[in-house]
Design a protein around this nucleic acid. Sequence first.
DNA 1: GCAGTATTGAGACTGAGTATCAATATGGTT
DNA 2: AACCATATTGATACTCAGTCTCAATACTGC
Lengths: 142, 142
Amino acid sequence: MVASQFRPDLMSVIEDMGYRITQPRRDVVKLLETKPDGFGAEEIHGALPEVGRATVYRTIRLLLDIGVICKLVMRDGSTKYSLARVEHHHHLVCVRCGTVEEFLDSTIERLVRAIGAEVSGEILGHRIEFDVICKTCLDYAN
Amino acid sequence: MVASQFRPDLMSVIEDMGYRITQPRRDVVKLLETKPDGFGAEEIHGALPEVGRATVYRTIRLLLDIGVICKLVMRDGSTKYSLARVEHHHHLVCVRCGTVEEFLDSTIERLVRAIGAEVSGEILGHRIEFDVICKTCLDYAN
DNA sequence: GCAGTATTGAGACTGAGTATCAATATGGTT
DNA sequence: AACCATATTGATACTCAGTCTCAATACTGC
Ligand SMILES: [Zn+2]
Ligand SMILES: [Zn+2]
Ligand SMILES: [Zn+2]
Ligand SMILES: [Zn+2]
């Protein structure tokens, strides 16, 4: 089971994968559903004193495994996790405020597939990432 | 000064940037010029007992700053550095042997520029990375 | 060669993430 | 509703990559 295009209840995705529904998992998931712009692990931990640090990291790993969040390494080297709304997508990351936006473009996907034919070896996957200054930050600068 | 298309002597690039020519820097640069496939920082350090660990990391940072190597975060989370032969390029990373190959495609660059117009906000840069099984690993599997 | 400054190296330190393991919570069963 | 087997938790110790500190040393311009 994988996250659908329509953001189902994350807890039921976890359950469907055969994992148990626990209070810590509920807490973490509930919190990150309110943070669509990407969040750090320690940020979650700080906001949930009742959940152990190890459990926060374990839950993040679990959510990564089942594909409902994505991991992003920012330009400054820090790591952010962000809810995955759609299955295959890329990211626009604002270098100023850090906001993460998902990005889809069928043309680029077609091209990427075409490149597979030209390249020696077999392409298994790809990642595309844009460094941007988002609309909000641009407006704010004026 | 930035690395040219023709891999100039890295030491002179360093000198041109106003940094001093030192033995540790010579050692690190010399070693990594023999490792075109990407290398880890500890790997360099292990191979150069006469150079301090901090200096290895400092030299890597310096080379990143002047743009003659690139930093790659592998799928397993480990970090590799790899000589940059050409200025703007992307990477084909073999998920089996870890070999890093540089990749250029004018079509994708044109497309990426075109996307800039469609997107709200301003695109500053991009990164594209392919996970592949390289020719050698494919052949070896047969 | 000298002076002034950039660089070095040993080692302490940080921060993200993982391993350990006894204690606890969960879900299926009766 | 209590019971059991096991998945999960949390405190803590640990690892690993990378950075900081600072006294000692090496460069470079003069
Ligand atoms: Zn995403
Ligand atoms: Zn894609
Ligand atoms: Zn490269
Ligand atoms: Zn490009």
